[in-house]
Amino acid sequence: MIDVQPITSSVVIVPKAKPPLRKRAWKSFRTFPMIYIGSAIVLILFVFAVFSPWIAPHPYAKQFSDGITANGMPTSPNHKFIWGADALGRDVFSRVIYGSRVSLEVGILASVINLVIGVTLGLISGYFGGIVDTIIMRVTDTVLAFPFLIFNMALVAILSPSITNVFIAIGILGWGVMTRVVRGQVLSLKEFDYVQAERALGASNSRILFKVILPNVIGPVIVLSMLNVGLNILTEAGLSYLGIGIQPPTPSWGNMINEGLQAYQYAPWILWYPGIALLLSVLGFNLLGDGLRDILDPHNVTH
C-alpha cells in the first residue's frame, strides 16, 4: 500500500504597498481640487482675521498726515502704505486685514443661526408631516418670496445698523433654503427600514430625529452651511456698501468699496483691494462647499 502524504501549501499574502505620500496627495488633489483650493483661501482668511492686530502694520482708524499728499489726494502705494492710503489718510492694507475679522464674524455667526433654525424646522416638517409640515412650508415660502437683500435692509433699518444686528438679521432671514433641503432628506430617510425598526422598538420621536435621522443629513447640511457663509459675507458687504450695515470707522469691505467708488478716478487702489478680498473670500467658501459636496457624494468614492 502506498502511503500518500497530503500536500500542504501555505499562501503568503503580501499586503500591497501604499504609494508614497506625495503621490497619494497628488491623486487626492486631482480628484477633489476644489476643497484644497477653497481650504487654502479660507485658512488664509482665518489667519488674517485672528491675527489682524499683529499682521496689520497700523491701527485701522488712525489717520496719518503723510497719508494725504500736498494737493489733498490719498497717498499712493509706497513703503509705508503698501496698498496706499484712503481719502482720510488711513492705511488701506490695515483696514482690509481688519475687515476680514468683521466679514468672518458676520458670515459664520449668521450661518450658525441659519443652521439652527433651518435644521430644526426641516426635521420637524419632514418627520411629522400633516398640518405641521403645511404651516412650516408656507412660512418658508413666505420668507423665500421676499428679495433677500431688501428684506435684510428693512430689518437692519428697524433694528439700527450695528454688527450684532447685521448678523442677527441675516441669520433669521436666511434659513429658508436650509429648511427645504433638510425636509427633503427627512422625507426619504424616515421611510428606511432602520428608522421603522427604531419606531417599532418604541424609540421616542426626539431620539429618532436627533440620534437616527440627523446624523444622516449632516453631509448636505455642512455643504450648504459653507455656501451660506460666503453668501452671508456678500450680504454684509452689500448692506455696508449701502450705508446700513457696519458703520465707519469700523472697517468693512462693503463700506470700503463705497469709499473707493467715490475716489476711483484718482485713487483706484481704495476700491481694488477690498473688492479683491471680498471676491476671494466668497470664492473660497464656495469652492470649499463644492469640494465637500464632491467628497461626501457616495458616487465619487474612489478606491
Rank of each mutant, 00 (worst) to 15 (best):
N232H: 02
A263G: 06
L292M: 14
I257S: 02
Y36E: 10
I55G: 08
I222W: 04
I244T: 06
V182K: 08
M34S: 13
V186L: 07
T69C: 09
H79V: 14
L187E: 08
F146S: 07
Y194G: 03
L159Q: 00
F148T: 10
L280E: 00
I135V: 14
V229Y: 04
V119S: 05
P248Q: 05
G184M: 04
R293N: 09
K80G: 04
D66E: 15
Q247E: 13
G219S: 15
G129I: 07
P77R: 10
I55W: 10
V221T: 07
F192R: 14
A70Q: 13
G230E: 01
V166R: 08
I295D: 03
I135S: 11
I208A: 09
T250H: 01
M256S: 11
I13D: 04
A49I: 04
V116L: 15
S252V: 07
G254K: 08
W269L: 11
Y273Q: 03
S125K: 13
F146E: 04
S188T: 15
N71P: 02
Q185P: 00
F148Y: 15
F167P: 00
P248F: 10
N78G: 15
D141P: 12
L224T: 02
S162V: 09
T31R: 15
P20M: 10
V11T: 08
G122A: 08
D86P: 14
I244S: 07
V182G: 00
V182N: 03
H58I: 11
V12C: 01
A203T: 04
Y98C: 04
T120F: 13
A25N: 05
V50D: 03
R207N: 12
F148V: 08
G122W: 00
F46I: 11
L187G: 03
P161F: 12
P220V: 02
L234Q: 08
L283I: 09
V221M: 04
V11H: 08
N258W: 01
F81W: 06
D86V: 11
V181H: 05
D133W: 05
L123E: 10
F128A: 04
G184S: 12
N78R: 03
N205V: 14
A277C: 10
T8R: 08
I37Q: 08
P74N: 14
L123H: 11
Y60G: 01
V182E: 00
